[in-house]
């Protein structure tokens, strides 16, 4: 299983993550698909994404919004590719539409077949067991305007992911509180950091933290 969980940030902050990710891909001319969290203005994010990976000589990209009608022909191209990227955005909205478009199962199959799945922020949270971390801290959380009740993620990993983490007391307070309730380890990553999983091998890129049972551990 090949996964990359990005926290966020600018392209120049993620160069190490990008290089580590691309080293997991077998194909020298990989086909990369971008699934935006929401189709609204997604071409802007797609453009930024292309710009980021063209620096690494990637040439083949597909833009594939799933919260609107889509063609099965394009879907097939996406799932026959090498990398699928789940973008950032509102985690609830994104999960709702991935589920509605029956993408969650297809993505798991893609990963099982050896495809590389990457996610940034919301996209990364959805790859984990649940999307609870999208709901806090109170000062920087996603609004559940879609009233999504089933907060189960894809469950590709046995931990939870907290993106855009800032090493400060107000973040720690909420993370420590949550970690007492959760049975899972919560990996908190600042922008530019992230986690790579390559066939069972877990690598932390950048300064990452773990919150578990009411404790904070620097990784």
């Amino acid at each position: 299983m090949k996964l990359a969980l990005y926290s966020g940030g600018h392209d120049f902050e993620n160069i190490r993550m990008d290089e580590a990710l691309l080293s997991m891909v077998g194909n020298k001319n990989p086909k990369v698909s971008f699934i935006p969290s929401c189709s609204y203005l997604s071409h802007v994010d797609f453009r930024e994404y292309v710009s980021q990976y063209r620096k690494h000589r990637i040439k083949r990209f597909i833009h594939f919004p799933i919260d609107t009608s889509f063609s099965n022909v394009v879907k097939e191209e996406v799932f026959n590719g090498d990398i699928i990227h789940l973008s950032g955005g509102n985690t609830y909205y994104f999960l709702k539409h991935l589920r509605k478009a029956k993408m969650l199962g297809a993505l798991k199959e893609f990963v099982k077949r050896g495809g590389v799945l990457t996610g940034l922020s919301a996209g990364a949270i959805i790859m984990t067991k649940n999307i609870n971390t999208a709901g806090f801290p109170s000062f920087d959380r996603d609004e559940n305007e879609d009233n999504v009740k089933n907060l189960n993620g894809m469950g590709l990993v046995n931990f939870e992911f907290f993106p855009h983490y800032k090493n400060s007391a107000r973040y720690d307070k909420e993370l420590l509180k949550y970690s007492k309730k959760s049975r899972n380890k919560i990996y908190a990553c600042p922008d530019g950091a992230g986690i790579l999983l390559n066939d069972g091998m877990k690598t932390f890129v950048g300064k990452c933290y773990c919150f578990f049972n009411g404790e904070k551990i620097v990784l």
Binding site: K31, K59, R60, F61, I62, H63, S71, N72, V73, V74, E77, G81
Partner: peptide, 25 residues
């Protein structure tokens, strides 16, 4: 729809669509 999808499909697969695929899009 066709004009939006065609360039990225050609970029992806480097071959033309068959008739059923063309109509599907």
């Amino acid at each position: 729809d066709l004009l939006r999808e065609l360039p990225q499909i050609y970029l992806s697969r480097e071959e033309h669509l068959n008739e059923a695929e063309f109509i599907e899009i």
